[in-house]
Design a protein around this nucleic acid. Sequence first.
RNA 1: GCGCCUAUAGCUCAACCGGACAGAGCAUCGGAUUUCUAAUCCGAGGGUUGCAGGUUCAAGUCCUGCUAGGCGUACCA
Length: 555
Amino acid sequence: MSEDIREAIAVLIKKGLNKAEEKGEMKLEHLPSIHLEIPSLEEQGDLASNIALRISSQVKLPPRKVAECIANHIESLISPASILSRVEVAGPGFLNFFLKPEAFYPVLDRLEKEGTDYGKSNLGQGKKILVEFVSANPTGPLTVAHGRHAAVGDVLANILDMVGYKVQREYYYNDAGKQMEILGKSVEARYRRILGEETVFPEDGYKGKYIADIAREILNEHGRNVKGTATFRRLSEEKIFEGIKKDLADFGVKFDNRVKEGSLYENGEVEEVIKELERKSVLYEKEGALWFRSSSFGDEKDRVIKKSSGQFTYLAPDIAYHRNKYKRGFHQLINILGPDHHGYIGRLQAAVEALGYDKESLKIIILQLVSLYRGKEKLRMSTRSGDFVTLRQIIDEVGKDAARFFFLMRGTNSHLNFDLKLAREESPENPVYYVQYAHARICSILNFAAEGGIKFGGVGETDLSLLKEEEELRIIKKLLQFPEVVETCARTLEPQGLTAYLRDLAGCFHNFYNKCRVISEDCNLNSARLILVKGVKTTLQNGLHLLGISAPEKM
RNA sequence: GCGCCUAUAGCUCAACCGGACAGAGCAUCGGAUUUCUAAUCCGAGGGUUGCAGGUUCAAGUCCUGCUAGGCGUACCA
């Protein structure tokens, strides 16, 4: 429901309350905020208010009584010009508002004018926001789990952009740690083995086939005399990153920036942040190590930031990295992490607060795991053993569109069961096609109209009041909700609402399609319906665009 | 031990700041196409929201306890 409609109804409620007070029917100390919701059932009107239930104890009257009183006064305010057609008191004391169709038609005008901008808002007020996601260390190809991270991060970024933030997508990775060391050693061992040398494969080494592939490539490109784990590490990193970049590109994800952990050491930011924390007296020494007093900022316990060996823990560059984000002018940070990192939240937010930033400005999304199925069969996965399904395989097997949609269908907090068999099937059970099909159908109608020489003008020269079928009004009301849905997704950082909305909208359309013909003998009705259908097309397009999924003209 | 997350229809999941009879899809059963794409639509059945208490006019939602599963609680990343 659009803002202006909500506002208009809220004003009516306030007027109704004022009148009731004037007449001495009730006495209000303070007015709670008026919250209007869209009822789940159509019989309950277009908007509903629980205001009577909220104030009933305050005015010492039964809720239904209060509701009836307000309703009566509102009714007396209804004029032929108002958008309200009637108010009802229902249930324990709800006020149900039924609006006239004219209240909804303006959305079609808006759609015509705004086109691909429909859904934009100014919630973000141009603030800079940084979304950090995937951030997989280049120790191997991206897996399905990374795929979910990529899809969710990318779409959240799209959504935040839509509601008026200046968004940057960032990928952070550890190029100098132990994992990369192991990678180097693993590749080196394979390389030597290919050369026929006797080698011991590292105990924790990566065993995937890709390790041998890289070793072979290095052999082909750099010959038989490559030496030193550091060299193998560097070459492997490059190779793997090429693959990661390609996978992400084919998945429709493009990062604005990539930050290496090592760079934070090189430019001295790690040392700097330690000094800054020392100045703020939040560090102390114990048992030969340097500790961060994170428990003073809401973390469960204090954390070691510099080991007794003199080396920093991962926490040090992490804090430096987040400080770096703020220094670059971002005042809102979003990190998407896996469930194995949820211990991070406390210490990272503690660090942010210790540095003098608002803890709330760092939002951490813990994105739950993905389990892969092929029909009933559950696939086992383990990165270390090399026994995993890659994002590449998913893209190749089910396609980018289906993969993205599946990754976005669940709440971030829910485990995701991804059935490869279902995602690949071009069957009605596959929800991606349901939405895309609606779009393709509309394109087909528009083509049919064009080929038949059926012209239709703009909203201005069309009698929209001809759109009075139940199915038509349902669609229009649904279209009206789109900007709100986008805003809710942005506020809750849950892209799931968008996939659900698009399925709903597509459903409304398919329903209408089966009931009503768009092109008929009635020219005026044709025009009105073509405008309606075009509005659905624009909205589907905008929604699919946010999801990074194509909107095919034909299927 | 302590902390976080999860538990809703046979299956996979929804439910906006606590609101009305807890909603979809799949699966099952029955129906719809001479007409713009049947990858579609309509209808039916299916529930003690893990268990036990509590708060309130109102609880899937908040509080307490319990059960089951996942994860964290590293001078690993």
